[in-house]
Each structure stands twice: as C-alpha cells, then as structure tokens.
C-alpha cells in the first residue's frame, strides 16, 4: 500500500522535473523580446480602445509608435496633446502640437425644420433605413434620427434630443475619436477644430440638391445661393454641388456669412450675443427685399 503512494509521488515528481527542464529550454529558444517601451507608452494612453487613432486598440497603437520611431501621422485624439507630449518625452521624440477636434452635426433637419411626411416602421437603425428610403422628411442627405451615432459613441458624448429628433454632441465629452463619423451612413458628422474659446462656424447641411428641391424638404437647407461665398473676405467658403462649405482653417470667425444666409443654415456656436444693430438683421432673414447689400 505504501509502495503505491510512494511510486506515484516519485513518478509524478520525475515527470514534473523533466517537463520543467524541457519547458525552460523551449522558453529560452522561443523567447520573444518585446520592447519594454511599448508597456510604458500603453500606460500613458487612455486605454479606451476606441480605435480613434486608426489602430485596433491602445496596445496596437503603442506598438505602432515604438516601431515607427517618430510621431508623424500618429495621434491619439482622446489623450490629446498632453498624452502625445508625454509619449514624446518617454521616447525622446518631438510631438507636434495638434489643434483639438470635435464632432459637429451638419444637419438641422429637426422635426420642426424638416417635417416628417411618412412614417417609418422598419428596423430602427440608420444604416438600415438609409438603404430603404430617403428619410421621414424626404431629404436624402439629412439625419434619419435613429441614433447609430449615439450607439457608436463610447464616451457618452452624444444623445438623442427627443424634441428635435437630432443627436446632440456634448462638447466636454467628445474626444473626436471618429466613431460617429464612421457610423453615420450619410456622413453627416465632421471633425472640425474646436476653435478659439470653443467658437465654431459651420454649414449645418450637406444637401447637394438645387435650392428648390432642397428647400421643399427642409426649411433650413443650404440652397447653394452663394451669398456667403461673396460675403466672406477670407476665401474660406467654397460652393461645390450647390452646397457651401466653410474651411475651418481659413475661417476667421467673423460671422458675416451667418448674417447673409437666407435659410439660416450656417450655425455659430458659443459666440456672445450680437450687438443690437446686427440682431435686427438676423430677426428678418427671410425678407426677400434686402438684395442690395452687396452693391
């Protein structure tokens, strides 16, 4: 009886020792030498694994940085300039100061501006609805209001406003990870510079139709009239396919374009209220008479 137990203990111990020796040499033979800096860089990164850098998570991004040996075209939008500067310090590199970006919704086709004409009762995702019809308002470019962007956001920076039927960007939470830009089947979101004091001006519409059909479906559509292009003194606005686009890197935030827009499709965010004289003009933007402003 004692023998059996003793034999078993000896045999198993023998197997264990042999296996340990074999495993030791195998481990030496196939050792993977990993750059210890990868772990350091990864620790600095936010660890959100959002994919905003274009890599499959923070670890992959850290590996890419260490392998590349420079920081060209590599940027963590979530960590921002602070994280990138810290990484640069660890690796002994130079980090370029990047202007922080934020997502903006280029559509103002709310339930009141673009009145729903039909009722959609299909599956409630935008990607789906986009392939079935043009939208409840009839605008083939506008927001479908089913919230694929909200679902894609990992930073709680988007919510659906029930009153307007449009998603809203929460400025403090948005890290410009690009997820909503990719999730929107109509490409309505755009990453734009946050701007001085968070002030931004952009065209809140991506409808490329001519004026009449665009206006038919939405009160605040860009009708491609070109008034803003003429008004802009900095050549920041271009008109392509009946749609105005404000280049944020040329724009000097003078706000004159927003005043002349006949459909109020140019949005200004976080500006102080206008002075009296200007406010009057804003109040009556739909009046057809004041054409002579350019003359």
């Amino acid at each position: 009886m004692d023998n059996i137990i003793l034999n078993a203990v000896i045999a198993l111990s023998g197997i264990g020792v042999t296996a340990a020796v074999v495993l030791y040499f195998v481990a030496q033979k196939f050792k993977v030498i990993e750059d210890p800096r990868i772990d350091v860089v990864e620790a600095i990164l936010p660890g959100a694994n959002c994919g905003g850098c274009g890599f499959a998570g923070c670890r992959a991004f850290a590996e890419a940085i260490v392998a590349a040996g420079n920081l060209d075209n590599l940027n963590c939008p979530v960590g921002g300039n602070t994280a990138m500067a810290e990484i640069a310090k660890v690796l002994g590199l130079e980090a370029e100061e990047k202007e922080p970006l934020i997502a903006v919704l280029r559509c103002n086709g709310s339930l009141t501006n673009a009145k729903p004409k039909v009722k959609y009762d299909g599956p409630l995702t935008c990607a789906f609805a986009h392939n079935l019809y043009s939208g409840e308002s009839g605008c083939p470019f506008g927001c479908l209001g089913l919230g694929d962007c909200v679902d894609s956001c990992k930073f709680d920076a988007l919510y659906m406003d029930k009153a307007t039927g449009l998603p809203v960007v929460i400025q403090d939470n948005c890290v410009a990870c690009n997820a909503c830009v990719k999730a929107c089947p109509r490409g309505i979101f755009e990453l734009r510079p946050k701007g001085k004091k968070d002030r931004r001006i952009y065209v809140g519409c991506i409808n490329e139709e001519k004026g009449a059909p665009a206006k038919k479906n939405c009160e605040v559509a860009c009708i491609g009239c070109g008034k803003c292009v003429k008004e802009c003194q900095f050549d920041a606005i271009t008109l392509i396919n009946n749609l105005a686009y404000i280049d944020p890197y040329k724009c000097k935030l003078c706000r004159k374009c927003a005043l002349v827009c006949p459909t109020n499709s140019i949005h200004e965010l976080n500006f102080p209220p206008r002075k009296e004289k200007l406010v009057e003009k804003v109040d009556a933007p739909t009046e057809p008479a004041p054409v002579a402003t350019e003359g």
Binding site: L132, Y133, S134, G138, P140, A212, P213
Partner: peptide, 11 residues
C-alpha cells in the same frame, strides 16, 4: 424640369 422621389428614395 423638376425633381421627384422614386420609391427607392432616390431623388
């Protein structure tokens, strides 16, 4: 000359 919406949503 106008624009219309077809059942597939195309203008």
């Amino acid at each position: 000359l106008g624009v219309t919406t077809l059942p597939n949503g195309r203008h």
